[in-house]
């Protein structure tokens, strides 16, 4: 299964958010979409997920058109994708278990099996003990795991992660990255990570797409891109990384 965008552009009123993006997402090859705030990362992800139609260009899923200019042909829930949102998007009136069950609302599984799947997802994300709590009564890291459990419960082909680690401490972030990696292997799902922090990308993805001002400026294997950066964004990141190493004596 693979996603493909062909010359995708998106404008909001007078403002251009994305311009002529062509990219292929292959199953089994995790991809990081990198860029500064406002560079169009989330917009691209939302177009891939089917929440927004492109203003120009097409999106294809396994060679079939799923979005064309100003029209979403295949709705999000029929694209075999799942998503962890930046603000987690947990429903405040539902328990943790109810939130995970929401992820399975559109599947044709019998109710008993849905509940079993939700329980499994909670266990995989090590939050089975929180099942009856409400989102207002759990920590940020736990909330992140609930959002992850909801996203993987349906066993999607692609897992879209929209800056899921912002606001997390380094230790929790490392734990959740580890869990995503394990889930990717055990369930065969492919992560597509949107982030402005290339360090997050390094820990999860091999391929990267760099956006600047809504345009694609770099794409390819992440290691190669970091070695010889063509964009100012990656160059700045490499300088920051070097400065950190030098100040801590890491380079010696």
């Amino acid at each position: 299964m693979n996603f493909e965008t062909r010359g995708v552009s998106k404008t909001f009123g007078q403002r251009s958010a994305l311009s002529d993006i062509t990219v292929t997402l292959q199953q089994g090859v995790p991809l990081a979409i990198l860029g500064r705030s406002g560079s169009g990362k989330t917009t691209l992800l939302r177009i891939l997920a089917g929440f927004e139609p492109p203003s120009a260009g097409e999106v294809l899923l396994d060679g079939a058109f799923v979005s064309i200019p100003e029209r979403v042909l295949v709705p999000p829930h029929k694209r075999n994708v799942s998503m962890v949102f930046q603000d987690l998007a947990l429903w405040p009136n539902l328990s943790v278990f109810g939130n995970v069950l929401l992820g399975l609302a559109g599947s044709n599984l019998p109710s008993k099996e849905k509940r079993e799947r939700a329980r499994q997802a909670l266990e995989m994300c090590s939050i089975a003990h929180l099942a009856n709590r409400h989102p207002g009564r759990i920590s940020g890291g736990e909330g992140q795991r609930v959002a992850l459990a909801r996203a993987v419960a349906i066993r999607p082909a692609f897992l879209f992660l929209d800056e899921p680690f912002s606001g997390l401490d380094a230790e929790t972030k490392a734990q959740i990255v580890g869990e995503i990696r394990t889930l990717s292997k055990s369930q065969g799902l492919t992560a597509v990570l949107v982030t402005h922090d290339p360090l997050d990308a390094v820990s999860l993805c091999q391929q990267a797409l760099v956006l600047e001002g809504g345009r694609k400026v770099d794409a390819g294997p992440l290691a190669t891109l970091l070695r010889a950066p063509e964009s100012r964004f990656l160059e700045a990141f490499r300088e920051r990384l070097q400065a950190t190493f030098e100040s801590t004596g890491g380079l010696r």
Binding site: M83, L90, N93
Partner: peptide, 28 residues
């Protein structure tokens, strides 16, 4: 409800799921 919360429901089961869960949210 935020746009993302509704998008999460739409992603799970389309507009009908988003509507049903919002009805449940607003019921009380």
């Amino acid at each position: 409800l935020s746009g993302s919360q509704l998008d999460a429901a739409r992603l799970a089961g389309g507009e009908t799921t988003a509507l049903l869960y919002t009805l449940r949210h607003a019921a009380l």
